[in-house]
Amino acid sequence: MARTAVSPLDRVKILMQTQHISNPGEEKYTSVWQALKRICREDGPLGYWRGNGANCLRVIPYSGTQFMSYEQYKLYLLRPNEKQLTVERRLLAGACAGMTATFVTHPLDLLRLRLAVQPELKGVMDAARSVLQEGGVQAFYKGLGPTLVSIAPFVAFNFAAYDTLKNHFFPEKRPGTIATLSMGAAAGLVAQTICYPLDTIRRRMQMKGKIYDNTWNAFITIMRNEGARGIYHGWVANMLKVLPNNGIRFLAYEFMKTLLGLPHKSEGGGGGG
């Protein structure tokens, strides 16, 4: 639900991040509103959801694996007779959860990107065939390195920020709907602002062909050719997407815990989760 709701902004973000590779020397997308109008004009209203099928196929195992592994890593890192994790160990648990979920679902993330930026592809299977022809099975893991580097800190800051806010304001009870949405949005804002440059690099490295030698080469090349602005292309669209998306994710998670009869408190009874 969260991904489908913000799919138009997600596609705008990806197009703005990758346009200097897709359309060298031309800046097709100059603002969020201009990009939204251009997508509608060129692809029709359904163009806003191009690649969303692959995205939804990815987000189900990705979110499930991420939330499950985060809870397991928290329990593993909890010391005997300790009620709550420190912020540092919450960050570590989040980073490990992000890397675990990313490794499992990276091929689907790559297919989603290709569908968003290559209009000639007709669907998920067509995109998969294209990737296979490009470089075999290993091509599905193009950009895995920078993806892990970008996702690990994002998930770490995201979960740690949410848990910290939740334990501070609601140590003994489940937060309400508005509170959960607000804390989720705030956590996403903190995490995405810190990690966005790495997200731009991984998107570009997932594109067709070999554009950069490695993550560091990509960073240096973008900074040299486009300046600091280049590393933050699409940031506004991403923020408009991340705030509702992250709020809805945590709201759905808390709701499902209640629906399934899972306890609000975790980590040995100290709150969180």
Rank of each mutant, 00 (worst) to 15 (best):
T18G: 04
F154I: 04
Q206Y: 02
E82N: 09
N214I: 00
R202C: 05
P61N: 08
I39P: 08
F250Q: 03
R129N: 12
F157A: 15
E26T: 13
R58E: 15
R50C: 03
G230W: 03
E172R: 11
R129E: 01
G47W: 04
I21P: 03
P175A: 01
N55W: 03
Y29F: 14
K122H: 12
G51F: 10
P8G: 07
V137T: 12
T30L: 12
M183I: 04
L243Y: 03
Y212M: 06
K28D: 09
G227C: 09
Y29K: 12
N246F: 10
L198S: 06
T30G: 15
T200W: 01
V32S: 14
L78N: 05
G136T: 01
C96R: 14
F67W: 12
F169Q: 09
P119I: 07
M223D: 05
T86S: 15
Y48H: 13
W216Q: 07
T18R: 15
E82P: 04
I60S: 05
V6Y: 03
A161E: 12
V149M: 07
I248A: 05
V190D: 07
E120A: 11
A35E: 10
V155H: 11
R174H: 04
L189M: 10
E254H: 01
V6L: 07
P61R: 09
W33H: 14
G44N: 04
A139F: 03
C96Y: 13
Q133W: 01
S63P: 12
A228L: 13
A187T: 06
P244T: 02
T102D: 11
K166Y: 05
M205F: 04
K28S: 05
L91I: 08
A237M: 03
L9T: 06
Q138Y: 07
Y196Q: 02
E82G: 00
H20N: 13
A187K: 02
L251K: 01
M183Y: 06
G234C: 05
I194L: 11
K83Y: 05
G53M: 03
V190G: 10
F255G: 00
L121C: 03
E134R: 02
L57E: 09
L251V: 00
T180L: 08
G272H: 05
W235A: 09
G247D: 02
P263E: 00
R202W: 06
G261N: 04
L36E: 03
E82K: 07
T102Q: 15
E120F: 14
L111G: 12
L251Q: 00
T30A: 12
A191K: 11
K265W: 01
L262S: 03
N81M: 08
V131W: 04
M256N: 00
T200K: 05
K265L: 09
W216Y: 12
R3Y: 11
H233N: 14
A161G: 06
K142W: 04
G136L: 00
N167R: 15
M256L: 10
A152S: 13
P175V: 06
V12Y: 08
T65G: 10
R229S: 12
G268E: 00
A186V: 04
A95D: 10
S130P: 07
K13D: 09
W33R: 15
G44Q: 10
L198Y: 06
